[in-house]
C-alpha cells in the first residue's frame, strides 16, 4: 500500500494555480475546473478563496494581470516562475531567426515564430528581454539582400500560402526563360520551397499527373478555381541502389527511406520525390556508385540522361 505523505493542502492549491497560470491564462471558472479535476483537491472554491491564492502569488513577487475585457476576464502570469538565461550570441540568434522568418514572407512561419518568442520572453529576465528588443530593432534596419531578396514576391508568396491552406485548385500561367511559349497548367499546390536565390512552388499537375516545381519568378498569372482539390496524389517512389563506400556514409534526404545493407554492403533507397528530373540529376553525382532500379520510367529516364550527356562529347 502506498504510504500517504503529509502535505500542506492550501499551499498545494496555490502552487497548482501557479503551475496552471504558467501554462495558460485562466479565469475563475477555469481555476475551479483545475481544482475539481485534481485528484488531491477534487472540490470547488469560492471566488474569495481563489483571490486569496492569487494575492499570495502576487505577494511572492509574481506579476499577475488583473482580469479585464481585453484579457477575456482571465488572470495572466506575465513572467514565468523560473528564468532562462541566454548568452549574448543566443539573444542575437533569436532576433536573427525572427528576421529570417520575416524575410520568407509566410504568415504561418511568422505567426509560429512570434508565438514561440512571446512564450520564451516570459522566461527571460527583463534586461535580456530589452536586449532582444534592441537586437530586433537593429536588425529591422538591416536591408541586405539576404533579408530582402524575396520582398518582391511578398504578395505572391502570401497568396500561394493562402491557396495551399484553402486546398483549392489553381490555374497557373508561367514561362520558363529557356522556352519561348507560355505554359498554362491546372495545378494542386503542395508547398512553398525556398532555394538560396529562388522561391519555388511545388504543385501537382492534374493533366500530366506529375509533380512540378515552378519558380515563382516565372509565374505570370495565377487564378484560384472554385474546385476543391480532390485527388489525393500519392508520389510514385523511385528506388535506387547505392554501392561502395557511399553506401556506408549516405545521408538520406527527408523524403527518402533506407533499407539495411545487403551482404555486399549495398543499400536500397526509396525516394518519394516530387521532382524526378532533379532527383536523377542529383543521382548522376554519385557516378557508378548509384543505379536506379524502379520504376522502369525512372530507370529509362536515367539511361537516357546518361546517353544524352555522353552525346555532348561526341
Amino acid at each position: 500500500m502506498e504510504k500517504k505523505v503529509k502535505i500542506s493542502a492550501s499551499a498545494y492549491r496555490v502552487l497548482l494555480l501557479l503551475q496552471k497560470l504558467n501554462e495558460n491564462d485562466c479565469d475563475i471558472e477555469d481555476i475551479n475546473k483545475f481544482f475539481l479535476e485534481d485528484p488531491y483537491i477534487s472540490r470547488l472554491f469560492s471566488k474569495d478563496v481563489i483571490l486569496k491564492y492569487i494575492n499570495t502569488l502576487r505577494t511572492a513577487g509574481y506579476d499577475i494581470s488583473k482580469p479585464c475585457v481585453a484579457s477575456k476576464h482571465c488572470y495572466k502570469l506575465n513572467n514565468a516562475p523560473v528564468e532562462i538565461e541566454f548568452s549574448e550570441a543566443e539573444i542575437k540568434t533569436l532576433a536573427l531567426l525572427k528576421k529570417y522568418a520575416q524575410s520568407l514572407h509566410q504568415k504561418r512561419l511568422l505567426e509560429n515564430y512570434h508565438s514561440f518568442l512571446k512564450k520564451l520572453k516570459r522566461y527571460m529576465p527583463n534586461e535580456q528581454k530589452e536586449k532582444l528588443e534592441n537586437c530586433c530593432n537593429d536588425l529591422e534596419k538591416n536591408n541586405t539582400a539576404t533579408f530582402t531578396k524575396f520582398d518582391h514576391y511578398s504578395n505572391l508568396i502570401k497568396k500561394l500560402e493562402q491557396y495551399i491552406a484553402e486546398k483549392q485548385r489553381v490555374e497557373i500561367k508561367y514561362r520558363i526563360p529557356s522556352e519561348e511559349a507560355e505554359k498554362l497548367a491546372l495545378m494542386e499546390l503542395q508547398c512553398i520551397k525556398y532555394e538560396p536565390n529562388d522561391v519555388c512552388i511545388i504543385c501537382y499537375n492534374i493533366i500530366t499527373n506529375q509533380v512540378n516545381s515552378i519558380k515563382i519568378s516565372q509565374i505570370l498569372d495565377i487564378k484560384q478555381l472554385p474546385v476543391v482539390s480532390k485527388i489525393s496524389q500519392i508520389l510514385c517512389p523511385v528506388i535506387f541502389k547505392i554501392k561502395g563506400k557511399l553506401a556506408e556514409v549516405y545521408r538520406p534526404y527527408e523524403d527518402e527511406r533506407l533499407t539495411p545493407p545487403d551482404a555486399k554492403g549495398h543499400i536500397a533507397v526509396t525516394a518519394y520525390s516530387n521532382d524526378i528530373e532533379s532527383l536523377l540529376k542529383r543521382l548522376l553525382r554519385y557516378e557508378a556508385n548509384c543505379e536506379v532500379l524502379y520504376p522502369k520510367m525512372a530507370r529509362d529516364k536515367m539511361i537516357n540522361l546518361i546517353k544524352t550527356t555522353i552525346n555532348n562529347y561526341q
Partner: peptide, 20 residues
Amino acid sequence: PFKFHITKKEMETLMELRKY
C-alpha cells in the same frame, strides 16, 4: 514543473528556419 513548453508547429517552424 515550470519548464518551458512549445508546440509542434513552433518546433517545425524553428527547424524550417534552421534548414533555410
